[in-house]
Amino acid sequence: MTLSPAAYDYLLTLADDEHMIGARHTAWIGMGPFLEEDLAFCSIAQDELGHAIALYRLITGDESLTGVEVDTLALDRPHGEYRSSWLCEWPTDDWASALIRHWLYDLAEQLRWQNLASSSVAEAAALLPGIEREEAFHRQHATSLLDRVLATSGPTDARAKLNAALAELAPVADSLWVAPMLEAEAIAEGVAALTFAELGVRWYTTVRGELTRLGLTATFDPSAQTDRTVRSPHFETLHTDLNAVRVEDPTAIW
């Protein structure tokens, strides 16, 4: 299978977001608020990395034919050739921020994957059933946990912490909907059904409705990330971390 340049870029955009958020989620291994949540959250991180690998494999095709390895594509590109959104690159220093980002991203993912349901790239559409099953769990996990922490009265003011997390992340959340570079062509080719702008409208409706239900407040700014070739100030550190082992030992394999 050979992907058109637009299909390639479109799927790379989704893959890079999955890769970066999966990598950021893994920073919470061993750091979760309690053991069970630590395990659940790291499982979600593994799911996202799994989705990234599935998409990267689809993009590289048969490694023996294309000569491009998934690791090379995932880790060796110049920064400008990555397509991730700033929200996915952002570090979270507080558990509340990690939870809010997980919630925002997984609500976005639901729309993004459904948007590939009748994709002209049949291999991408074929990923949906397996991935959607995991994503349903991600959404249930995020929403349930937000409900519970807000319903519990304890020494920590959960609402204040979550509002602070939203104040930190909502201003970069719109980056999720910065369109893939060749989106118009990709849609013309049938790779995806709707534009990111159209998906974004639906996402904001859901997110704002849920925030009202939960009694949380957030101010969303138009994305400061102007397009998908521009990296956030936090990307370089993340990318260096991801490559630390490979730099140390280029022959290292899992």
Partner: peptide, 17 residues
Amino acid sequence: SLEAPDAEMAIMYGRES
């Protein structure tokens, strides 16, 4: 065994743990 706030979360944590 595991700790969870309620039955719904217990099932989730049960599977993940």
